[in-house]
Write a protein that binds this DNA or RNA. Sequence first.
DNA 1: AGAGAGCCAGTGCTTACATCA
DNA 2: GATGATGTAAGCACTGGCTCT
Length: 263
Amino acid sequence: MGLDDVHNTSLCLGLGIGCLVKQENFSPSDHQQQKKNRSFLKHDQFLPSLSLGPSFVKFDSSKVDGEAIDLHQRQASSLSLSAVSSFSNSSVKRERDLGGEEVELERVSSRVSDENEEGSPRKKLRLSKEQSAILEDSFKEHSTLNPKQKQALAEQLNLRLRQVEVWFQNRRARTKLKQTEVDCELLKKCCETLTEENKRLHRELQELKSLKLTASYYMQLPAATLTMCPSCEKVDNGGESPSASTTFTIGQKSHFFTVHSLH
DNA sequence: AGAGAGCCAGTGCTTACATCA
DNA sequence: GATGATGTAAGCACTGGCTCT
């Protein structure tokens, strides 16, 4: 993962401390898109001092407008969409074949208008697999759509504009929720690591304190009786008692513990 | 300042699926 | 094994509030 990847997929953990605004290559004409993507900019553009991993949201601001529509048109040409979503008043039965794959058997819903036969507002629908797939592809391209794209997508999928809008809103919400869960897990692990480190440092501190006490004890002895090896940091009593009990080690080299003088 | 557009957060309702008696 | 009741997760849609133009 290079620096560019880090920039494009940076993870914001929302710690709120030391966040830096990342510079993106937005052109002035992208201003509207920036505004539209402001919720994602929170994730992509603010880099906290604690960076734990990649974001799952990757927004490429350089691609706007035409591409998504072209993609949809390409897909539309290769897919014969059933323009009918599965409404609550049209029964959809799913069966699983031996391989566990879902086979969708749609008993035809008669219509796609906004209201049912009784004239009451339509309740629920479930988009077809093809519709969902195209919406997903579109979402991968752009997490938000401009009105033009929205209209094109709605026409392509034979859905109302509002349905496309709602789908994207819900999709963004789901993405955000998932990202929050991921962030939460990472923070939990980070917290556990820091707790362990804290415990370790506490133990080390205790050891150093006890060593300091021991050192103080030996400092009370006549100075000539103690010497310290500068390389191995061992204190010796000058050979007066070669029987090993007076030699000890002051911590590890990496620790901030200094014995200035034994005189 | 007010209107309109667009987005988000919250929530209700429906559907599909799993589990259990 | 089949069936109905129940719980749950996911998806669609709506509403209210907010921000920006």
